[in-house]
Amino acid sequence: MTLPNAIENQIGNGIENAGAQADLEITAVPERRHVLDLDDFSRPEINALLDSAKGMAEVLGRDIKKVPALRGRVIVTLFYEASTRTRISFEEAGKVLSADVINMSTSGSSVEKGESLLNTALTIQAMSVDAIVIRHPHSGAPYLLARHLDRVGIINAGDGMHAHPTQALLDLFTVREKLGALEGLKIVIVGDVLHSRVARSDIWGFAKMGAQVVLCGPNTLLPLDLLGGDGGQIPTELASVKMDTDLDRAIQDADVVMALRLQSERQHSGFLPSVREYIRRWQVTEARLTRAKPGVLVMHPGPMNEGIEISSSIAHGGSSVIEEQVTSGVAVRMALLYQIANQGR
């Protein structure tokens, strides 16, 4: 197939320019082998990553979204759980950077024949892959791979109830783009924090950037032990995190309100008396939002249960940055892939 000269030139220029630009933006990011959670990121490293993501966002805004930064690199997405946005977002991020992205889903693979996670990952490593993006229902699954694989960078795309660091980074990116700085902001995360890997990583991310995090929800769905419990060492970075069961009080003067997905099985397993009572006490509504700061941002990691944890009018209203979160996700994942899949070059 031959392309008209004009278009070919355009692609060529795009590649050259973007390549140069991308390199310029990214050299400042400290070296890192895996992205497992945000607890081992420093504030300068997060800032450097967000800066690099900004450069990536610029690429995404171009007419032709393609740069050669990861040409010749192979990335496998290994998803043991359903996903729409995270998976497509990683795939797009890899492809825009010219990596070859192979999506492996567990159905139709040897996983169905009972192959263990570790053996599956070792098999993928043996195919000269540069990075594995893994989502798994068990907390710590990416750590298992990081311990046993020696030639592949691991990116955690969500493990059990533990962590979802790329989501947290895109949340940080979105807020920084909208409000300028993260330090001193009041971030209210409301809902099923206990079972939320997004919240756990967001807590680390926002706290490390100097924001004030308030977790809000029923006592049965708050990670009360995270900040207490006897004998546990509370990391100093989390010392400022607070918990409150009263959303009307928690939302006071908030800069950001993030609603979390409420899974209906929480009612059946007894964490809640009813979804109805949850809505009454913890739904993010217009009335409640008036207590927040003017210009408050409303966020949600998705997928949403509109009318349960968040009212429809808020989800699609002027304060909502839920779609911007999704867009940011691609840029942030480009920045991460660029770094992790480019090792040993």
Binding site: D225, L226, D230, Q233
Partner: peptide, 13 residues
């Protein structure tokens, strides 16, 4: 064990 470490690691306590 239920506690700060379990919560941190996202493991059921």
């Amino acid at each position: 064990a239920e506690g700060a470490v379990a919560s941190r690691l996202g493991l059921d306590g």
